[in-house]
């Protein structure tokens, strides 16, 4: 930007200073996962492969295998992302490009829900899931997670659909397409940046999701990685090395995305994602 003072290295130094805690935290996690002992941020002793025993042993302290949790997490995050992108895109397409009664109020409702704090509904959702027989199932949590993030997704995708050319869509209709065909063969391919943005956001958000599975899942066989890791926190004796290793393993996709897709991440999150 046009605000580059001559003494900018000083400001950079200040920036480094206030960012130190984040760097220290990450470094601490990595070192603790790798070394026998860490004093502050200084590794003491040798590399500690035993922290990673959870990868090879079937179960640690009576927990299900981490591979089960990993599989659940992948299924959970993947399904949530696909559902959310698909359902949000369909609704956003209709809101952006079709005439129907109550279209404006519908959009207003989506925007209101986007601002509405959905966590305050957990208690009632618990009850609803029990009534539906979806309590303690991954399917139930998936539906809840996808639904709660839906207003954001619809809002985001609407912005992308709004930019498509009307002429092009008219051309497709004259060429013989139905709206459904236009959606799949013309509109969706052209909002790929939006799909990628929403998909990434949904994946990350579902991958880290804790409170929903924690509240709605009991059986260890349905644990996600969040629950698996959290189960160590409740122990009287905390095995920091093991937990750091589990945490590093769990957060690996996030770190990779951070390392290789910074620009992309910034773009997605600058696009108005909820705080």
């Amino acid at each position: 930007m046009a605000l580059l003072p001559r003494n900018w290295p000083l400001w950079l130094l200040l920036l480094v200073l206030i960012t130190l805690p984040i760097g220290a935290g990450i470094l601490w996690l990595v070192l603790t996962a790798l070394y026998n002992q860490v004093h502050g941020l200084i590794p003491v002793g040798r590399l500690a492969p035993q922290h990673w025993r959870f990868l090879f042993e079937g179960s640690v302290g009576g927990r299900p295998s981490i591979w089960v949790a990993l599989k659940n997490s992948l299924f959970f995050a993947g399904t949530v992302a696909v559902l959310e992108v698909l359902i949000a895109s369909m609704a956003a397409y209709a809101i952006s490009r079709m005439k129907f009664p109550l279209r404006t109020p519908y959009l207003g409702m989506i925007l209101t829900l986007h601002a509405f704090p959905a966590v305050s509904l957990l208690i009632a959702i618990y009850y609803i899931l029990r009534v539906l027989g979806l309590f303690d199932t991954l399917v139930g949590v998936i539906l809840v997670k996808a639904s709660l993030d839906l207003p954001l997704g619809i809002w985001l995708m609407k912005g992308f659909f709004d930019q498509l050319s009307w002429d092009m869509e008219m051309a497709a209709l004259v060429d013989g397409a139905s709206r459904w065909t236009v959606f799949w063969r013309v509109a969706l391919p052209l909002v790929r940046p939006g799909i990628l943005a929403l998909g990434t956001f949904a994946l990350l958000s579902a991958w880290g999701e804790f409170i929903l599975p924690f509240t709605f899942i009991v059986s260890a066989k349905s644990w996600t990685l969040a629950l698996y890791m959290q189960s160590f926190m409740k122990e009287a004796f905390v095995d920091y090395g093991l937990m750091a290793a589990v945490g590093l393993f769990y957060a690996l996709p996030v770190f990779l995305l951070f390392l290789f897709g910074q620009r992309y991440l910034l773009n997605i999150y600058s696009g108005g994602v909820k705080g």
């Binding site: 050319s165 002429d167 092009m168 008219m170 051309a171 497709a172 004259v174 013309v186």
Partner: peptide
């Protein structure tokens, strides 16, 4: 139909 903007699929 041919549109003023041609409206080809990019």
């Amino acid at each position: 139909m041919v549109f003023q903007s041609y409206a080809l699929y990019p």
